[in-house]
Design a protein around this nucleic acid. Sequence first.
DNA 1: TTTTTCTACTAGACAGTGTCAAGTATGAAT
DNA 2: ATTCATACTTGACACTGTCTAGTAGAAAAA
Lengths: 192, 192
Amino acid sequence: MSSLKSESLRRTVLDAAVAISAANGPDAISMREVAREAGVSHQAPYHHFTDRSGIFAAICEEGFRQLSEALLAPRPSNDSNMCESYVHFALQHPGHFRVMMRNDLCQLADYPSARMEADRAFDILVDEVKSLLGEGASDEIVKTQTAYMWSVGHGLATLLLDGPLELKLEGIDDINAFIHQVSRTAVTSIHV
Amino acid sequence: MSSLKSESLRRTVLDAAVAISAANGPDAISMREVAREAGVSHQAPYHHFTDRSGIFAAICEEGFRQLSEALLAPRPSNDSNMCESYVHFALQHPGHFRVMMRNDLCQLADYPSARMEADRAFDILVDEVKSLLGEGASDEIVKTQTAYMWSVGHGLATLLLDGPLELKLEGIDDINAFIHQVSRTAVTSIHV
DNA sequence: TTTTTCTACTAGACAGTGTCAAGTATGAAT
DNA sequence: ATTCATACTTGACACTGTCTAGTAGAAAAA
């Protein structure tokens, strides 16, 4: 609509980008489209983001912060675990998640604040695995089992969100129960 | 270089596309770039592929066929499993794999022959899970455990190939041993 | 042989894209 | 009153996918 003062355009552009990502994937995010959606000239977003990958970096930063919150949030039942939280985050924030998991869209190394948020989320996962394994676990084991847990969560999330074989899972009536089941298999099999 | 007769241009274009995908990801594949690489006019590839997503579909078809072969191929040791084969395929065919796992690039539903190959690969996975579970397993369990195994393999493959957190795994000296370890954890925990 | 048709291209144009460069309007600081 | 920075707008450029309209050559039909 009308031009929005200052920082609020940044917010507007970011929201538009996330919405587009949720609807049509990150590749559908274009500088000119988000500008159009915000009702400003095609060059206005450049005042808030260095370039297209700057928008992706901002989405990552926000997304990883939200992911950390989701991973640390108290879970609905004792039986549910962090892997489940991860998958639910992905399904509840598809716009963010799709960008976060596309390393080619922005090099996190070039965006320290986004990188920090990503690291923090990963550290939360590592800590969880450590507490599951107990004191005596070696670094090597912790690394292996963290990658394992991450793989299950990430694999299941992408399978459900954008998987090429999603139709294969059509028969599943209760998607949440399904996620719960898979996550449980994963976490209960973490061991030294 | 010089114009290549008939079907061989199709092959040349496909190879160029896969090479670009391996080097810079599928988004870097452009009709004009592959044409340039093949030494033909920017419009020539359209005679072999309906459009850009037609190229992606062709890469998928080829990739899933190769994946099926890889999954069925005899494994180097009794200790290694199908999950491991999956991950190794991804790392050995990054150009294909990156396209295959990007559902947004081409709608498999619109390309029946590609879809068939994808189904076949998935069926191989389902059969393996069935044989791991034994005769008595219900459809629901088979589905859950297949999704589980797929998630681990796919998650680990994308983590290693394009993961946003790949630097976290820097310390790992023997990547193959690592893959083996994670895959083993996954497959040994498949149960009813 | 001439003509027609098919295949595998080439050439040109169009709208859309990211982004560089330059201009402008507004408010604060000097 | 002037300078300066912020937050934009406008215009241009090269690049993209793809539509349309050709063309050169070989095979088939007359």
